[in-house]
Design a protein around this nucleic acid. Structure first.
Length: 534
RNA sequence: GGGCCGUUAGCUCAGCUGGUAGAGCAGCAGACUCUUAAUCUGCGGGUCGAAGGUUCGAUCCCUUCACGGCUCACCA
């Protein structure tokens, strides 16, 4: 069933092949390939940011599946400046005082973690393992403040004019001659409102703090306050870590964009070469239109998605879509279809559904890449999402009670089903259309008003179910309902309406006969009890 | 202005190492005494945006053009 050979046309495998081809071969001094990802945690790490991580993870998986040693690094660019106060903070105004500080020096607005940056980082780091993603995190604040990049910074200073020339080719306003390829956080105020005055040609850098007017000279080998601007920082780190693969958002991938200038800088300044890359497009949220933006208040993060989609299906969404295609994550009725698509993909993988060979190969590979760990040897038992939603509505969200209705499961299966059930329940409560939802009535509720003809039919149905419930299947019960309505001079449609009133106090509900059977004899009789007397 | 990406059945899209095009939804027909987009069965000749080129053969490769979109030219 494995499909990891070189014939796979999945994009992750194609890029893995390209990495091995362009960046190989491995040698005693190069023992593995390095795949990198990273972002600035300057706000909520949303599902759009996640695309980069999962894209790299999928390529990492593809490399591992080939038996190639690989290192997956994730850079938290948390030595970046707090440039603007997001509108979604609890108390935005008090945060204005922190502008221009590195985001690791800004407090956590929710007061849980050490810093603003850490708060965003931690929330993502905690959830990634559930998706089977485990990168090696690199914190740029730590690196820079430990002077880890002293050499790289010095190299940038040595090639100041070259770098300025490269950047100026694409700028509308050329950088002035006195520009330096570094920025400094003032050691007097912590802010990056500083001006570099001179460099001694070795390790000494002199700057002036614009706010206090004070000047000082720092040694790059011990300074904890000097960093490179993004367009220089990126290529420096490519060289530093030996990055072989790193995708980037489309805002970076155009002529004159940061990937382009980084490529030229790594080649002409750092003596390296740009990694294999690809461009990934944005993610949108169906029904919320446009880009994800914290200022618009439509930030959807990974936890929001995991609340509705089980981890395998989150991976499936990304594994099954080419990175350079924009796509929308849906929270509406599409959710049901996505679950059905995934279950179908699973059946194809295990040979339970017949499809063409080409399609089988493609779907199988997507399935493998969607798993958070190893692929199960035997096909897992499936519980259709839609049905699961209905059963959960019957049990009022009691997950174990709902699953018990599907039979006995192994502990392993139960564990997985609980995750799906939690998603299903969450979806019915927070996203499903009103028509889809219901809550079951019981004998302790006051009976609803229904007319006499309907009442007769309800009683008749109750008697029938009491006596012959086990003899009925969906079809025979259906026939009984119709016949019984007609016998009592009632339009079947009116009887249906009455039954839904009785059961869920709504005009409509799940297909009645199947619904009754799903509810079970005792539950139905209990609900009908108040209608049987007098 | 530069770069990138699209343009395939009414709609949403698959089709990516070239061999005369497919899936879902919608629609049509039939079945079901039926009720939520989601019962079952059957039905898909659409100039694969346009024009050239390469090839025995192109939706898939090359060139040009048209239309649509994105992105860079501030900061990251």
């Amino acid at each position: 069933m494995g499909n990891t050979g070189s014939q796979s046309t999945h994009w992750a495998d194609i890029h893995a092949d390209k990495i091995v081809r362009d960046r190989g071969p491995l040698t005693p001094t190069k023992s593995h390939f390095t795949c990198a990802s990273g972002i600035t945690p300057s706000g909520t790490v949303h599902i759009g940011n996640f695309r980069e991580i999962i894209s790299v993870d999928l390529v990492v998986r593809a490399l591992k599946d080939k038996g190639v040693p690989v290192r997956f690094i994730y850079s938290w660019d948390d030595y970046d400046v707090f440039r603007k106060v997001p509108k979604n903070l609890p108390d935005p105004d008090t945060f204005r005082q922190y502008l221009r500080l590195p985001i690791t020096r800004v407090p956590d607005p929710w007061d849980e973690y050490d810093s603003y940056a850490r708060a965003h980082e931690k929330r993502l780091e905690e959830v990634l393992p559930t998706l089977g993603i485990a990168p090696e995190y690199i914190y740029q604040t730590e690196r820079y403040t430990a002077s880890h990049y002293a050499k790289g910074i010095r190299v940038a200073l040595e090639h100041r004019d070259t770098i300025r020339g490269i950047l100026n080719e694409f700028r509308s306003e050329p950088l002035p001659a006195e520009w330096w390829p570094v920025s400094v956080f003032s050691r007097f105020t912590g802010r990056d409102s500083t001006t570099v005055l001179s460099w001694d040609g070795e390790w000494g850098l002199t700057y002036r703090c614009d706010d206090s007017g004070r000047e000082e000279t720092v040694d790059l080998r011990s300074a904890d306050c000097v960093k490179l601007p993004w367009r220089v920082d990126w290529p420096m780190r490519w060289k530093e870590e030996g990055v072989d693969f790193e995708p980037a958002g489309k805002e970076h991938h155009s002529a004159g964009g940061s990937f382009d200038t980084a490529r030229r800088i790594v080649e002409s300044v750092y003596g390296g070469s740009a990694p294999v890359t690809f461009k990934y497009d944005f993610i949108s949220i169906k029904g919320m239109g446009g880009k994800i933006s914290s200022s618009l208040g439509n930030v959807i993060d990974l936890n929001d998605v995991l609340a509705v989609y089980q981890p395998e299906i989150v991976r499936y969404l990304f594994a099954g879509t080419r990175p350079n295609a924009e796509f929308a994550i849906s929270f509406d009725l599409d959710v049901i279809k996505i679950y059905e698509d995934y279950d179908r993909c699973e059946r194809v993988y295990y040979g339970l559904d017949e499809v063409g060979e080409k399609k089988r190969a493609k779907e199988s590979r997507i399935y493998e890449l969607s798993q958070t760990g190893d692929v199960a040897k035997e096909a897992p038992v499936q519980i259709p999402f839609r049905h699961l939603c209905n059963v959960l509505l019957i049990t009022a969200g009691d997950i174990d009670a709902a699953l018990a209705r599907f039979g006995d499961f192994t502990e392993e299966d139960l564990k997985r089903h609980r995750v799906r059930a939690a998603c299903a329940w969450n979806w019915t409560q927070n996203h499903a259309p009103e028509d889809f939802r219901f809550s079951l009535r019981s004998s302790s509720d006051d009976p609803v008003d229904i007319d006499d003809a309907a009442l007769v039919c309800v009683r008749r149905l109750a008697e029938e179910l009491e006596a012959n419930f086990d003899d009925h299947d969906e079809k025979s019960l259906q026939e009984f309902i119709y016949a019984s309505a007609r016998e009592n001079g009632l339009e079947p449609a009116d009887f249906f309406t009455a039954m839904y009133q009785v059961l869920v106090e709504k005009e409509k509900g799940p297909r009645l006969s199947g619904f009754l059977i799903t509810l079970g004899r005792d539950t139905v009789l209990d609900i009908l009890k108040p209608y049987r007397k007098g």
